[in-house]
């Protein structure tokens, strides 16, 4: 019996020690004593998953707010048609259309379209449920507060901003930062579509300037998506779509003729009507693709 106890203690100790050594090895960067200091640093850098450059994208609400300040009026019938969220089956299409609906929600709220805003809020919630993150709407009673404040544009804008904050935090805590970038890509395309459709009617110069200015962040959106591509290979197709918009924009004469001095002087860019039309056609094509899933 004593022998058995001794054996048990010895075996347990060996197992524990081996377990601790194994666990320690799991956290260690493999080291080769023969490698140079430079090689050693390179090995350590390769094991750290932090990019040298990362991107912080704005919210759909800020984009809608910028367009609104430039004089963007409400135009009936241009926002996306309310569809059954279950129609979207891939995570990419769900996130993109959550973005599309978020942009429409912001546009309708800032233009006091109460019933439409309520409908888009419900749709955003359903879409978030489909993505497994419906719980964010429950935090701080956001859904109920939205309903209670309907008609009060400022309060609703603050509630949407808060919803954005809890969503960002949820996605970060769940290591789903790629969803943030995809949602914003959907929202950006929808905002550009709405902006260009309103521009077609009024040809407002200030709105033209804002459409051109928005194009300057497309590179950041593409780079943000590229940085997350390994988390969802389907992002590759989205990047290609957005790059096709950027390629058209970069070839527009007004863009090619812009100098560094214009940038330095903060000179606002104005596109010709024909250029806006070319851009609108491409954006509409991509938006249709998003909405059709």
């Amino acid at each position: 019996m004593l022998v058995n106890k001794k054996s048990f203690v010895r075996n347990s100790a060996m197992l524990l020690t081996a377990g601790m050594l194994f666990a320690s090895c799991g956290n260690e960067t493999p080291k080769d004593e023969n490698v140079t200091a430079e090689d050693s640093t390179a090995t350590e850098t390769a094991t750290v998953e932090v990019e040298d450059v990362s991107y912080s994208l704005p919210s759909p609400l800020q984009i809608a707010s910028i367009f609104k300040k430039s004089g963007l009026k409400y135009k009936d019938g241009i926002t996306s048609t309310l569809k059954d969220p279950s129609k979207y089956t891939t995570n990419l299409s769900k996130a993109l259309n959550l973005g599309v609906y978020s942009a429409d929600l912001s546009y309708t709220v800032l233009n006091k379209q109460n019933q439409e805003a309520m409908n888009y809020m419900k749709l955003c919630r359903q879409m978030a449920d489909n993505l497994g993150m419906g719980s964010v709407f429950e935090q701080g009673n956001l859904s109920k507060r939205f309903e209670k404040n309907i008609g009060n544009e400022d309060s609703l804008a603050y509630i949407i901003a808060e919803l954005q904050m809890v969503t960002d935090m949820y996605l970060d805590e769940n290591d789903q930062q790629q969803v943030t970038s995809i949602v914003f890509a959907g929202a950006w395309i929808e905002s550009m579509y709405v902006g260009s459709k309103v521009y077609e009617k009024g040809k407002d110069k200030s709105l033209n300037n804002k459409l051109a200015e928005q194009m300057t962040i497309l590179g950041s959106i593409v780079n943000a998506l590229k940085a997350q591509e390994k988390k969802d290979p389907a992002i590759g197709g989205l990047i290609a779509d957005l790059q096709s918009v950027k390629a058209i924009y970069d070839e527009l004469p007004s863009v090619k003729n812009r100098t560094e001095a214009d940038d330095e002087a903060d000179k606002e860019m104005t596109l010709t009507d024909e250029e806006v039309s070319t851009l609108t056609t491409k954006i509409e094509e991509i938006r249709t693709k998003f909405i059709n899933g």
Partner: peptide, 12 residues
């Protein structure tokens, strides 16, 4: 040195 790019808009 880690860097974050933040786009901002004129007038905001």
């Amino acid at each position: 040195q880690l860097e974050i790019e933040v786009p901002v808009f004129i007038g905001e």
